[in-house]
Design a binder for these strands. Structure first.
Lengths: 225, 225
DNA sequence: GAAAGTATGTAACATATGTTACCGAATAAA
DNA sequence: TTTATTCGGTAACATATGTTACATACTTTC
């Protein structure tokens, strides 16, 4: 297949390899490349997942399908993305969602066994793979923490403390609009305004259109614990 | 150090290796073993993390410390547990929290480089490492999903559908008390009762002390999307 | 600089859930 | 069987946040 080497070189697992090495990789593993049309099913929810998927061409969607027929798009993956990377190494290695091709697409599959072989032979692949898994863990941990805040005031405190870490000043420039800040925190804008006013009344902060001034940083932190 | 081999054999990364192989491992890597007393700091928040930690003896806590001085315990790790496994492979490899020894403890450190070397040489270690990271990803994903439910009714629907998947019947035996169910869903017991009653009024379910009967499974699923 | 458009604060009201208290039913103990 | 204890449903009230609407202040465009 023409262009396969370049395609693979785009993949997050191989993008710091030179061409020769990628060719080497291709010779060492028993890969499988399948073509799909628009709306073609790449993997069904519940199906066994025994191989890593790599999007060589096209773009695909990961969807959750409910018995009622409704589907929800969880993520979109385009060229160079991989999928199933966490599933193949988990105990219950079954796809938790359905994977659908959104365009004409070409998908490479590398078996779990060969992924291990690749990681053993190419430390750079191993490192990239670990990096992908690790970044995902950190991203999810952050998300869990954010979702765990119980009240709007908690979220705002966390948001302010994050800015404080970066700007290291009690007078913080808020780089986004109220609307965006509300979206970022997952609340309605009027709710955000109202709570900011209450926090001002409580002597925690002061604020105007595009700055927030920290009045009582101890109280803000205390509140987060 | 006496007993090191057995101690390491308990570790999640090496627990399917035989003794000889573990000895082999020990000869191949430049490990470091440090001792800590009670309340000894194993790693400070913000510090660079360049090595994998293994708890050989004792038990330790992962804590978040706030400038106000307050600390929150995030997890406890005992013998055989590892820490820093996601951090060493992430881009910003700094401890996000402080790690404190709770008893006298012995901690082994293996550098990132040697972890890679180990994974390259011992496919079983590689597999176990991947399994650890993958299971963590799946656990976190589940948690994010659960935390993302907006209303109590969403949580209840999800809870019911989970039971339905297992029991495959419209009449579900609820294996826990209301109190525990409320705790599991993270709400107050009266709130749970009230919402169950509303769902009964809405014709979605019927229930008594220890069973829930699904009346309209489509509506339940529909509601989750 | 005036007009139009957009962002923000504010208020009134609706809804969801927490909180507390109480009562009756189920269960365990005597 | 009686008594004590726990569990679950119920109600009244408190609080947090969503929802909608509107007025004011800021920004952009001409």
């Amino acid at each position: 297949m023409k262009g396969l080497t370049e395609r693979l070189g785009n993949c997050v697992l191989f993008n710091n390899m030179d061409v020769k090495e990628v060719v080497n990789v291709l010779n060492r593993v028993e890969y499988r490349v399948n073509s799909f049309g628009k709306e073609g099913i790449i993997a069904h929810e519940g199906e066994e997942c025994t191989s890593l998927g790599i999007v060589l061409e096209g773009y695909i969607e990961v969807r959750k399908t409910y018995a009622s027929g409704k589907t929800v798009v969880l993520t979109r993956l385009n060229q160079g993305s991989i999928f199933g990377e966490a599933i193949i190494f988990s105990k219950l290695h079954r796809y938790p969602s359905t994977i659908v091709s959104m365009t004409d697409s070409k998908i490479m599959h590398i078996s779990r066994r060969d992924v291990i072989a690749l990681c053993s032979s190419y430390p750079s692949v191993l490192e990239r793979f670990m990096e992908v898994l690790s970044e995902r863990i950190l991203m999810l941990s952050r998300k869990v923490r954010e979702l765990s805040y119980e009240t709007l005031r908690h979220k705002i405190c966390s948001f302010i403390m994050e800015m404080y870490e970066k700007q290291k000043s009690n007078i913080l420039k808020v780089p986004i609009t109220r609307q965006n800040m509300a979206e970022y925190l997952g609340v309605q804008r009027p709710s955000l305004s109202r709570e900011l006013i209450r926090m001002k009344e409580d002597g925690l902060i002061d604020f105007d259109r595009d700055t927030i001034t920290i009045k009582d940083i101890n109280a803000l932190e205390e509140f987060l614990t």
